[in-house]
Design a protein around this nucleic acid. Structure first.
Lengths: 214, 214
DNA sequence: AGGCAAGTTTTCACTTGGTGCAATTTACAG
DNA sequence: CTGTAAATTGCACCAAGTGAAAACTTGCCT
């Protein structure tokens, strides 16, 4: 071993430079601290300074990572939706779109993924400004779905089709989540998650049938 | 005439007290001033103080009417969507929902209604924080559609159905608007508005057919 | 009319969000 | 070890929002 801690001949594979690592760690620390503050003090009752203190950084550094306080919290939602999006991209291109969407949304009912989201949902629910940034996260996800769908369909597909579809799918996902949350609070038991899954399936079913059944 | 300006025996029909009138006027003045500033200086280049000055009121009074700068601009969108919502409520209850929705969305393509909206859309498009408050206005409208639909269907209808439906309809409306705007800028000619109408019809068609056609 | 009560606007002071800049500290290469 | 570039920090600043009390309007009652 020519050098301490790790072999220099080996770790040049990806991009795990100390700098990148630190940045990622700080980012996560901030997000965690923000969530902790939210949990502890409730929406609107803590400041960026509080978060910075808990994360062990300066106020100014916080703003180097997130443009706004809400953005730090929304990063949780971002991660959550990113997960579903990755799932969508994995689906075979010849599969019916709504089926791919359904499969992707199933990822949202995974315990590990759903836990922080459910908590955020519950803590966020009452507050206007927080809810606003949640909205933005879903919107951001919609944009990415549009991109993913465009890639799948090629240029032959109309822009209106793409946007209406992506928006509707996301709306159905939101509807399922909110109904689930209202029934179950942040209950993450297997039965509860099964219910969420069923809501997601039902919502996509409604979408696929043109909301005919009621 | 027992009193100056108007007959007291007559004007007690509604609620046009001087106070209400003044408030309404001020509110409109603020919204107008906000839009004027946006037009004149572009997004992010003017402050609440500027708006207040143009509207002839104090900064503090501005905040008595609107919680945030963006809210003042979003009031334009609110009025726009309110219009469509009123249309929806007028439809007969036995009509298929999607047909009612289609009819309501048609109201958006009316020249008088669409004009301020189109302008706002164009001025707002580039800016992040403004776009955020637009989102909120649509979300608010979604909530009202849910309420209206619940009223129409009575208690027999599932909450999931309601929310998924309302969200999807609004998404399709947004999709049609954004595609139209991207194609036509703020062109308000009859042909252009006809195109918007067609987009709205198409989007609702997609929704009704479960996005089968492409 | 005169005057009281309730509603509105304004002024003032204050906290917090958010940004630019210059100084400092930390990570990496030679 | 030493220079360079990236990251963190402190500081000063402007603008968003909010609370509270003073000043002004409007409506109502005798």
């Amino acid at each position: 071993m020519s050098s301490p801690s790790g072999s220099p001949t080996l770790d040049d594979a990806q991009t795990p430079s100390r700098r990148e690592l630190n940045k990622a760690a700080t980012r996560k620390a901030i997000a965690t601290a923000a969530l902790a503050q939210l949990r502890e003090k409730g929406p609107g009752n803590f400041t960026v300074e509080d978060i910075a203190a808990e994360a062990g950084i300066s106020r100014r550094t916080f703003f180097n990572y997130f443009a706004t306080l809400e953005a730090a919290l929304a990063s949780v939602t971002d991660g959550f939706l990113e997960h579903a999006l990755a799932e969508f991209r994995k689906r075979p291109a010849n599969e019916p779109v709504l089926e791919s969407a359904r499969a992707a949304l199933m990822a949202l009912a995974d315990p590990m993924t759903a836990a922080p989201m459910a908590e955020l949902f519950s803590l966020t629910h009452s507050d206007r400004t927080l809810a606003r940034s949640e909205l933005e996260a879903w919107e951001h996800c919609t944009a990415q779905i549009i991109a993913a769908a465009r890639e799948r369909f090629g240029d032959g597909i109309g822009e209106l089709y793409l946007r209406a579809l992506a928006g509707s799918v996301i709306s159905c996902g939101k509807a399922a989540m909110s109904v689930w949350f209202e029934n179950r609070g942040s209950d993450l038991s297997p039965e509860s998650l099964a219910e969420l899954r069923q809501h997601l399936i039902d919502a996509m079913g409604l979408l696929g049938s043109g909301f005919a059944a009621h």
